[in-house]
Nucleic acid binder design. Structure first.
Ligand SMILES: [Zn+2]
Ligand SMILES: [Zn+2]
Ligand SMILES: [Zn+2]
Ligand SMILES: [Zn+2]
Lengths: 153, 153
DNA sequence: AATGATATGAAAATAGTTTGCACATGCAGT
DNA sequence: ACTGCATGTGCAAACTATTTTCATATCATT
């Protein structure tokens, strides 16, 4: 079986990916790199979409399941639950930490980050004796455009 | 078919539930009340668990799927994505608004709320022209007990 | 109580996920 | 670079979860 991967111009994050994989005693394989690239390039993806994209690169769905499980175990990815669907996204080590405002009308996703929220979460965790590792914050509502449309309608 | 529901001492939230259902032009039925009660009493439940509990009250799994779909549509419930699993929880109208610290070791869930986070989220939304409706924040890490165990191990 | 509209349960159909196994591949040691 | 072995991969099949279909039961209204 031949994989259809092309080598990208920037090797940086992929080198980090490889190192982290090896450091965990896991093998660096072509399908794993392929799935990593999809997540890196295509942003948050649902499982069905990821399986579909991977499929068109010759990667079997079973391998996607197993790789996602591996990535999750190694904290390479995190799952964000937007409404009813769960999306997979590279964790903060690869993607700058941020949160989401999701428009329930058009599906648009606005990224944001807030130092105030981060600090407050740290404070709350400390107060509870909780050793914070990761977190996600998602808000749903209407984006500027859809809110305007809804107002005139 | 006989339902095994017993009437609870506090009728308050159930009356509200009934009213909200009727106001939306939906029927108030025994299975719907049963599922509402399960969620009210048993806190956040995964779909399999909810189906199981409902099953022991004589409610079919298909009805659970349809009812959850209805409750979601009417904003009676919200889905929180704790790690890999999705849990169903009554929305803030029934349950006081709060967020979760989830221990990745023992699964313990610590509820918390923070006025500072709420205010900041409002501010960010306003700045983006985003009309906020709901939001969820979940953090993962180690609870006090598990952190202590991990430190000594 | 009778009526009409809708919800429900049971079965069947689909879709999503996991498992078992033969073969392919990554990688450590030569 | 070549070899050997441990592990990853794809395929098929098992299994589980979810949706659809339809006859019957239940709800709200008259
Ligand atoms: Zn929008
Ligand atoms: Zn954050
Ligand atoms: Zn714990
Ligand atoms: Zn909040």
């Amino acid at each position: 079986m031949q994989y259809l991967l092309k080598y990208s111009e920037t090797m940086n994050h992929e080198a980090i990916f490889k190192d982290r994989l090896r450091a965990a005693g896991e093998r660096f394989t072509t399908p794993r790199l392929g799935i990593f690239r999809l997540l890196y390039r295509q942003g948050p993806l649902s499982m069905p979409k990821l399986i579909d994209r991977a499929g068109s690169e010759g990667i079997d769905s079973v391998t996607v399941y197993r790789t996602v499980e591996l990535f999750r175990r190694l904290d390479f990815i995190q799952e964000v639950g937007l409404g009813r669907q769960r999306l997979l996204e590279l964790s903060d080590d690869y993607e700058a930490h941020h949160h989401h405002l999701v428009c329930g009308q058009c599906g648009r996703i606005i990224d944001f980050d807030s130092a105030a929220i981060e600090a407050e979460l740290q404070r709350v965790s400390r107060a509870q004796g909780f050793q914070l590792r990761t977190h996600q914050l998602e808000a749903t509502g209407l984006c500027r455009q859809c809110a305007a449309t809804a107002a005139t309608a």
